[in-house]
């Protein structure tokens, strides 16, 4: 079993290093996120009440779309240079390796979104008390999103033009995250306890961490051969 953990650690280090050497690709979804968010106040009348009312929803949708943008590159490089075949053929459990890849992806695309959110929330005049709930909800929802997205990315990994299909696959499955995330933020803005939706988000995360790696592994096996 220790071999599996060594392999997982090595894969994590390799993925981190490879991603950090391409700053541009990492920054792209974040820029997209910020730009989409600035478009809304400009497109609507920038009144405090309007912005505060649509803010949580817009934030969540923008976060969803931005993470979709980041998903495309998740397995593409490994598919192209053949290292994915090595991962599939290796004696280590593929589900564990898939989990590592998805979590590294979250670390590089989901976590920056969470860190950026309090900043952007100011643009929508979200009350300061709600910020913690929003950040916590995003912290719980983005890993789930990375895991669901990784299933879809693995399914479309061998497609040349997978991007369009990727959106159709991910967004319906991400609906619960959007519903509960926006609900938690809404409750917090109204000054009520957001514990219910937050627990549901945590439950979804637990479910995704346990089940999604198996689906990712199965999808990668289909894509590789």
């Amino acid at each position: 079993m220790s071999g599996a953990w060594t392999a997982a650690g090595a894969l994590a280090r390799r993925d981190l290093r490879a991603a950090l050497r391409r700053w541009g690709e990492l920054a792209l979804p974040l820029c997209f996120f910020v730009i989409v968010l600035t478009l809304f106040p400009l497109g609507l009348a920038p009144e405090r009440d309007t912005l505060a009312a649509i803010g949580p929803g817009v934030l969540w949708v923008a976060a969803l779309l931005a993470s979709l943008l980041a998903l495309e590159t998740l397995f593409r490089g490994d598919m192209d240079d053949g290292s994915m075949e090595q991962l599939v053929l290796s004696p280590q459990p593929l589900a564990l390796l898939a989990l590592v890849k998805a979590l590294i992806h979250w670390l590089l695309s989901g976590l920056p979104l969470v860190l950026l959110t309090p900043l952007v929330a100011q643009a929508f005049y979200l009350p300061t008390d709600a910020l913690w709930v929003l950040a916590l909800a995003l912290l719980l929802a983005t890993p789930t999103l990375s895991l669901i997205g990784a299933v879809a990315a693995a399914l479309t990994a061998s497609l040349r033009r997978g991007a369009g299909v990727l959106g159709i696959l991910v967004l319906p499955l991400a609906v619960p995250l959007l519903v509960f995330g926006a609900r938690a933020t809404d409750l917090a803005i109204q000054g009520q306890s957001a514990a219910g939706p937050l627990y549901l988000l945590a439950a979804l995360l637990a479910l995704a961490i346990t089940l999604a790696p198996l689906a990712i592994a199965a999808a990668l096996r289909i894509s590789v051969d």
Binding site: A152, L155, T156, S158, L159, R161, G162, V165, I168, L169, A215, A218, A219, I222, S223
Partner: peptide, 20 residues
């Protein structure tokens, strides 16, 4: 339906769509 259609290789599309 879209995922199955997106694959050139029908057998692969079948299996990907099945997993989805």
């Amino acid at each position: 339906i879209a995922l199955r259609g997106a694959f050139d290789d029908a057998a692969k599309g079948d299996r990907a769509a099945a997993l989805l």
